[in-house]
């Protein structure tokens, strides 16, 4: 599913579902990861937190994310990944949620706070529908766990650093070490995310052997700062990252 892919994260419904769709159509990304806003995003830094809170306070509903995917795939064919915290999925009903995600065209689901130990039923339902699961791995993940994550994931989402999402000055040594290590252990492709926000970050990670990189907060910042011009700025920024 990924090979030197630029994965762009966008919070659904920020500032509106229509705008999210416009951002997707204009961004020069290979894959989109669409995040469902949640009231208590414990893995996210300030930028994405604020985007989620604003989306929720302007009336975002979980079903909007399926609307976004369906509309996008009517005009575009790039792959979509759905990202969520577990409670909105649980509350929806696991099966009903997966059915909608599959029906609206998502290729895989990443649940931030659902490690594989807790994912049993959810994983089985996804498999029955033929939709992929993406599990997180982190620099402190044991080899034993990495092997299981490798087996269960469509691709591995490697968290590049300790802490939460958000822009950082540089990609840490920890990230490269973790990537090297994960490449030795895993057979599936590896995408690196968290703190990846600059052109040189992306280049360095691809050079170090990442199959994908995920850029999130930096794009969300553009939405926050550029208002009407946001899709143009996103197009410019993502094109720069890509070549």
């Amino acid at each position: 599913m990924i090979s030197k892919s630029l994965i762009v994260f966008l919070p659904a419904g920020y500032p509106s579902k229509e705008r999210t769709l416009e951002f997707m159509l204009s961004a020069n990304a290979d894959i989109f990861e669409i995040g469902i806003p949640f009231s208590d995003p414990i893995a996210d830094g300030e930028t994405i937190q604020n985007a989620y809170f604003k989306a929720l306070s302007s009336g975002f509903r979980v079903d909007d994310v399926f609307w976004i995917a369906r509309r996008f795939l009517e005009i575009d064919e790039r792959d979509l990944i759905l990202m969520s915290y577990f409670n909105p999925i649980y509350r929806h009903g696991l099966k009903k949620f997966v059915e909608k995600a599959y029906g609206s065209g998502f290729k895989a689901i990443l649940v931030v706070d659902l490690p594989f130990d807790e994912a049993g039923e959810f994983f089985d339902i996804c498999r029955d529908f033929g939709i992929g699961n993406i599990f997180l791995a982190a620099p402190n993940t044991s080899e034993e766990r990495l092997r299981i994550i490798d087996e269960l994931s469509t691709f591995i989402y490697l968290v590049s650093t300790y802490g939460v999402t958000g822009e950082r000055e540089k990609v840490s040594e920890i990230a490269f070490k973790a990537l090297n290590n994960a490449k030795k252990v895993c057979k599936k492709p590896i995408a690196v995310g968290f703190g990846v926000s600059k052109k040189n970050h992306v280049d360095e990670l691809f050079k170090a052997g990442a199959d994908g990189v995920v850029v999130g907060s930096a794009v969300v910042k553009l939405i926050e700062e550029c208002g009407e011009r946001a899709e143009k700025e996103i197009a410019k920024f993502t094109s720069k990252l890509k070549n």
């Binding site: 490690p115 997180l136 402190n140 993940t141």
Partner: peptide
């Protein structure tokens, strides 16, 4: 249970 991001498992 233990519904946390992978980084908090260790």
């Amino acid at each position: 249970g233990r519904y946390v991001p992978e980084i908090l498992i260790p």
